[in-house]
């Protein structure tokens, strides 16, 4: 056997495994962010593409660097943007809280079911996760419309005299986000709660703790990683949500994902859209890094 040749083959295999996905992600995930960052410092022009080049390659390499902070200044001067950021954070945070309050007892109840029922219940949580997100949001449009099932029901029961405006309101946005992201909350909570040993609960009650104290002292702290992971999984994507506010929210529903989309497609102001994205990323840097930490610690026991 030719040792040198085979050593080279082993090295090639190693490089192949590591660098094929790595280079792909560098090219199509990291570089794009750098470019967004770069374009957020460019001037908009009416052209294709609609921004001034940051580096003028044709001339002397990198000598001509043109930076403008106009886009960021523009964002800060116009109330619209920072109100949108604030509102997005608020909507995402409140929806996350709702998801947690609904998801926690559900996840807990699933862990307490017997094995067969548990598998079916879990499958029913996972199923919406696989079915079209867009269509599930769309399903609420029919439910919430003026002549939709909810209004009909409320009228029939006599709670209201005339149909309420439910669709195209902030309420609909909250509902939509909680609805679509609920499975993302339940699954990590279930994973954390399922690992809890029932004998610990018994030991605690044996030592004289009331069920409520057992929950506060034992269950809650031991499921903390699941709570954090679930909250981040809901909060981060929800903050940039586009489809839900567009379909369910009113035309005045100022969420930043929608602003970015409009800035880009309707105003065709790419540099401002990039600046919006850059600031959004800065808002999300800490939650994302937190998520990655929990991803690393939780990733190893997903399949247990």
């Amino acid at each position: 056997m030719n040792t040198r040749y085979s050593e080279m083959a082993d090295k090639a295999w190693r490089s192949f495994v590591i660098y094929l996905p790595y280079v792909w992600l560098l090219l199509f995930f990291l570089t794009p962010f750098l470019i967004v960052f770069k374009i957020s410092f460019s001037d908009p022009v009416i052209a294709q593409p609609p921004f001034t080049p940051l580096f003028d390659w044709a001339r002397s390499g990198l000598s001509a660097v043109y930076i403008t902070f106009d886009n960021f200044l523009f964002l800060f001067e116009d109330d619209l943007y920072w109100l949108s950021y604030l509102k997005s954070v608020r909507v995402a945070a409140f929806s996350t809280l709702c998801c947690l309050l609904i998801g926690y007892p559900m996840a807990y109840a699933i862990t307490r079911a017997d094995t067969t029922a548990r598998n079916i219940l879990l499958l029913l949580v996972i199923l919406p996760f696989w079915t079209s997100f867009l269509l599930r949001v769309y399903a609420w449009m029919g439910m919430l419309s003026t002549h939709g099932l909810i209004n009909k029901g409320l009228l029939w029961m006599g709670f209201i005299d005339e149909p309420m405006k439910l669709l195209y309101t902030d309420f609909a946005v909250y509902l939509g986000i909680v609805y679509t992201y609920l499975p993302f909350m339940i699954l990590p909570l279930y994973a954390a709660l399922q690992k809890l040993d029932l004998s610990i609960h018994e030991a605690a009650s044996d030592l004289g703790a009331t069920p409520f104290r057992v929950f506060i002292d034992i269950t809650l702290p031991m499921s903390a990683t699941g709570i954090i992971a679930g909250c981040l999984l809901v909060f981060i994507p929800a903050i940039g949500e586009y489809v839900i506010p567009t379909l369910l929210g009113g035309s005045d529903s100022l969420m930043i994902g929608r602003q970015l989309f409009n800035e880009f497609f309707e105003n065709r102001d790419w540099p401002v859209a990039s600046a919006v994205a850059t600031i959004l990323l800065f808002i999300l840097v800490i939650p994302i890094m937190l998520f990655q930490r929990y991803q690393i610690t939780a990733g190893t026991n997903v399949n247990e």
Binding site: P237, F261, A277
Partner: peptide
């Protein structure tokens, strides 16, 4: 968030 991934 998808808008960021898409834009970039």
């Amino acid at each position: 968030p998808e808008v960021i991934t898409g834009l970039s």
